[in-house]
């Protein structure tokens, strides 16, 4: 952990140095709320998927980050993964959000695990495996986490293509018994 706190621009610069071409885009967002308009700082980085480990290692060098969650989005030709990290927690009004975005093409849905650096990422990585059907390399525990045991193989709920939830799997509970109910009411009249 470094004693001196970097500015958001310096954080981006450090990533620029260690990733080189791997850093595809970066932006800094500041939002303020309340009477005093205290600012919250968000750093968004887009990197190459092969550089994910280096990026996380770089983050660990600044301060051991807090990983909130890994979220993802099916963009059609590829799946975008977003790693939501936070650094400088514990400093009053000084926390930075660092979101690392990387795209996995549908033809090559493989990404390195980061559980060796951050063991707490396991839950999130297991979740991504079962919901997006991607493969996390060297994951220590690849069992299903949230989906039931009898969930069909090859169906990935968050995918928007043919492997997503099919229409016939959706039970419209609010329709159950509606017609019979109407008949009953008509009879009572």
């Amino acid at each position: 952990m470094n004693d001196n706190i970097l500015t958001p621009e310096q954080v981006v610069e450090q990533f620029q140095q260690c990733l080189g071409d791997g850093l595809q885009a970066s932006r800094i967002v500041k939002r303020s709320e309340g009477l005093k308009s205290a600012e919250s700082i968000q750093i968004w980085l887009t990197i190459d998927k092969t550089k994910i480990k280096i990026a996380v290692q770089q983050l660990c060098d600044i301060q051991y980050p807090h990983l909130s969650v890994i979220s993802g989005c099916d963009m059609g030709e590829g799946i975008e993964l977003l790693y939501h990290f936070f650094i400088y927690y514990g400093v009053a009004r000084g926390e930075y959000s660092v979101t690392i975005r990387t795209t996995l093409p549908k033809t090559d849905l493989i990404i390195d695990t980061i559980t060796d650096l951050i063991p707490g990422a396991l839950t999130s990585e297991r979740e991504k495996q079962e919901f997006f059907g991607l493969q996390v390399l060297n994951i220590p525990d690849s069992r299903r986490m949230f989906l039931p045991d009898d969930f069909p193989e090859g169906v990935y709920p968050w995918r928007k293509d043919e492997t997503g939830i099919k229409e016939e799997m959706v039970k419209k509970l609010h329709e159950v018994g509606k017609a019979e109910g109407a008949q009953r009411r008509a009879k009572n009249k």
Partner: peptide, 9 residues
């Protein structure tokens, strides 16, 4: 750590 709503004040 991360000011939002009125907590920043």
């Amino acid at each position: 750590d991360f000011p939002y709503c009125a907590y920043g004040d």
